[in-house]
Every structure is written in structure tokens, then in C-alpha cells.
Nucleic acid binder design. Structure first.
Ligand SMILES: [Mn+2]
Ligand SMILES: [Mn+2]
Ligand SMILES: [Mn+2]
Ligand SMILES: [Mn+2]
Lengths: 218, 218
DNA sequence: CTCCTGATTTAGGTATACCTAAATCATACA
DNA sequence: TGTATGATTTAGGTATACCTAAATCAGGAG
């Protein structure tokens, strides 16, 4: 059996690779909140077990084997979030951390039944796709908020940030998946974006904007 | 944070003490399916941390501190079983082992919401009481099946056995909490009990009978 | 009351998963 | 084209949680 710790490493690698970030020792250490030395050791072991390929001093990449496990964990994570929010009424900004505990306790059988209970959900509460049982991840055809032009209308597809603080803020201004928005103004060179939600306009910093993915509707 | 392993030790001690079995090193080892040597070591540490009192070569007893944690784990275990059976449709004989994975992943907040979702259940699917949030365990006024006399009618309150094989058998003959039964015949000296369920009579061995608790109705 | 035996503990060992501090490496810029 | 600097790995250490084999103990049979 794969340990919870290992599951978290693989999940981290999946996230870094999805975001197009290089999976350096330091990036993994930051994400898991542990020392770079610990990551280095662990990666070495996971390379021996063929979950990753490791080019020392360069970086890490998931193998097909590692990716399969990672996607499995991501599926359990996102289903857990869905359950926590839809069935238990846990706040969406707390769902992520809670799901990180729950995800390791779901057997395949339980995961399958949970998927049904939740009505075969396609996304987590933050809009990220739930991988299929066979490990496929649907393309949601979304683009970064920053790719929109002034006066474009769009619908929020997903929020990739998982920080409770950010999520709480976004929820408070109604910025969640399915929300209809309009770009009012853009600062040059990837600066802030001014976005209208309902009647009100909000300025979103570069950091927060980068985690918002949309589909044009206008 | 208390580890899953520690939670399982405390849970085991709770069960042994409830059943009136002496919490010997060997009994704990059998229950957890690990070596007696491992148990001995671990108990020593848990005694230092005041979860138990240990009289070397004699046995172990939960302290108030240890009992509080144990009851907390038992609550999460029984709620997990309830959830698995009622909401996910997991078979009751598989609920126990699945719950053992799930129970360690529930935060207090999640446990509280889950309790509500399940309609404040008083028992697990096998009839064992769900401890209250404050750690109280309701008395269910039940007695061992063997305490009944011939021709007594009774209602099943709980099945304390957790073996899938036994549970599957009992379910197959309709012997579960709330089932109405009648004692047809008893072998002397704690031997088999012949019990009528609906139209059919079944002989229950001493072992299996000991795990069936009832309340007289006739 | 002594001895035997099974239960228990201790000794010594492994694997995971973390740590800090020291050594080593890659590369960017001066 | 060195060299210093930051990233990475290695060295050495701790804690948990398991193991088998050896030593020790306690209580019942004789
Ligand atoms: Mn996790
Ligand atoms: Mn999510
Ligand atoms: Mn457990
Ligand atoms: Mn139960």
C-alpha cells in the first residue's frame, strides 16, 4: 500500500506539472511545507520505485505509473471536497484542507459509491475537473482571466488557488465557478484586472487573477 | 496530533474493556494483528504519555485521558459505519473494515456535520451505541442472547462481532438489530441456542450467540 | 514449594518520514 | 572564464512503528 505521505508527494507533483511549474526540490518542499532535504531523500526513493524519474540537481517528473497514482489521489481529493461542501455544508475555503485528510481514507469501493452519491460530479467545488475512474481528465477549455480583453464577458470555470484567505475573499465578492463577469479595465504588463461582478467592479491583483480561469461568453 | 496507530490501540483497549476481557499484551496483539513485542513497546510509551496505566506482566487500563480519546475514535468509527451503510450502500459486513480507514480522517468539524447529515443516529448499523459528542455512552439495556429462557421472545439490540463472515451469515438469515426472535430450545452449559426468526429456526453456536445482545419483548 | 511453561518484555534490527548542518553542484554575472 | 551564490544533496540524527529472537517473569501443576 502507498502511504499517505507518498500520496501527497505524487499529488504535489501532479499539481506542479499541471501548472507548468518546474518540479524542483524547493517547489515540492514549499508545497508540502517540509524541508528540501526531506524532499530530496524521498524523491530518491520514489525514483527507485519508478514513480518518478529524477535528474539530480535538475528536477523530477512523474512516470506513467506515478501519474496514474497521482490522478487517483486527485480524484479522491476532489470527490472529498464535493462531499464536504455539498453534503456536509463545509465552507469551500475549508474543504481543501479537510479533503487532504479524508482523501487517504477512501478505498476504491467507497470512492466509487461516493461518486454516485454525489451525482457523478464533473468538478470539485472550485471548478477543477474530477478525473474519471479510468484516469482521464476532461479538458474544460478554460483560459486564464488575464487572457481576456477589455469589455470581454466571461464565465468563471475554476479557481486553482487553494489558500483559504484568497478563497474566502473570492466567495465574499461572489467570484466562484459559473459566475458571469466582465472585464472593465486592464493594467498593462500583467498587472491588475478590473472585473465587474453583478453591479460592482473589483480590482484583482496579478497573483489572484492568475488562479482564475474563464470561458468567454460575449 | 494522535497518530492513526495510537487511535487504533486506544480503540482496541476500549473494546476489550467493554467486553470485560482483560487487556493483556496478547489480547491487544491479536486484536490489532501485530506481534506481542510491538504491543509491549507501544504500551510502554502510551503509559509515559498517560493514556494508559501499565502494570508490567499484568495488563493495561485506560486512564480517563485515554478513555476520552478512545471514545472519540469509537464515535467516529460508528458514524463512519452509519455513513457507509446508509448513504453509500456499503454492505454491513464490510462497513467495519472500511470505517477503520475513514475514522482517522475525520476532523471534529466534519464529524459534527456528519452526525447531522445522518440524522443524529443513536447506533451504528450493528446496533452499537454512538457515543455522544461529550463522550457519554447510552445504556441500551440489552442482555446476551444466552440469558434468555426457552420460549422467550426478544428483539435484537446489537451484534458485537465484527467478522465479515459472521455478519454476512447473520444478515443472510435476517438476524440484525430490531429483528424479532423467539428462543425455541437451548443446549445446556452455554451450548447452542435454537432461535426462530420469522418462520424458520436456526441453531446458533455459543461463539456467535455471545455476540448477540437482545431485549426481551415477551 | 519448586519447577515448567506460556506470556511478556527486552535486545537488536528495519523502514518510513521527518529534521539541521555540512558538503557539493550548476550557472549566472562580472 | 572564474567565482560566488543559491539550490540540491548528503551526513548524521530523531521518532514512530513494526519485526524476530532471546531473556525474563508469574502463576498453576505437581
Ligand atoms: Mn493529503
Ligand atoms: Mn478543489
Ligand atoms: Mn482504524
Ligand atoms: Mn459497528
Amino acid at each position: 500500500m502507498i502511504t499517505p505521505s507518498r500520496e501527497d508527494y505524487l499529488e504535489t507533483l501532479f499539481h506542479l506539472e499541471s501548472e507548468g511549474v518546474a518540479s524542483t526540490t524547493q517547489a515540492i518542499a514549499d508545497h508540502l511545507q517540509i524541508s528540501a532535504a526531506s524532499v530530496s531523500e524521498n524523491i530518491k526513493k520514489m525514483a527507485i520505485e519508478r514513480f518518478v524519474v529524477h535528474s539530480p540537481y535538475k528536477g523530477v517528473k512523474l512516470t506513467a505509473k506515478g501519474r496514474a497514482v497521482a490522478i487517483d489521489v486527485v480524484r479522491r481529493h476532489r470527490l472529498s471536497e464535493r462531499f464536504l461542501v455539498d453534503k456536509l455544508g463545509i465552507k469551500w475555503e475549508e474543504a481543501h484542507r479537510e479533503a487532504h485528510r479524508l482523501e487517504h481514507g477512501l478505498s476504491r469501493a467507497v470512492e466509487v459509491r461516493m461518486f454516485e452519491l454525489l451525482g457523478n460530479p464533473e468538478t470539485c467545488p472550485h471548478g477543477n475537473p474530477v478525473p474519471t475512474l479510468s484516469g482521464k481528465i476532461r479538458d474544460d477549455h478554460s483560459h486564464p482571466l488575464a487572457s481576456l480583453n477589455v469589455h470581454d464577458r466571461a464565465r468563471i470555470v475554476k479557481i486553482t488557488d487553494e489558500e483559504p484567505k484568497q478563497l474566502r475573499y473570492l466567495a465574499s465578492i461572489g467570484l466562484m465557478p459559473k459566475t458571469q463577469i466582465r472585464v472593465e479595465r486592464k493594467a498593462p504588463f500583467g498587472g491588475a484586472v478590473i472585473v465587474r461582478v453583478g453591479e460592482t467592479a473589483y480590482a484583482l491583483g496579478n497573483d489572484i487573477a492568475r488562479s482564475i480561469w474563464v470561458r468567454k461568453t460575449g
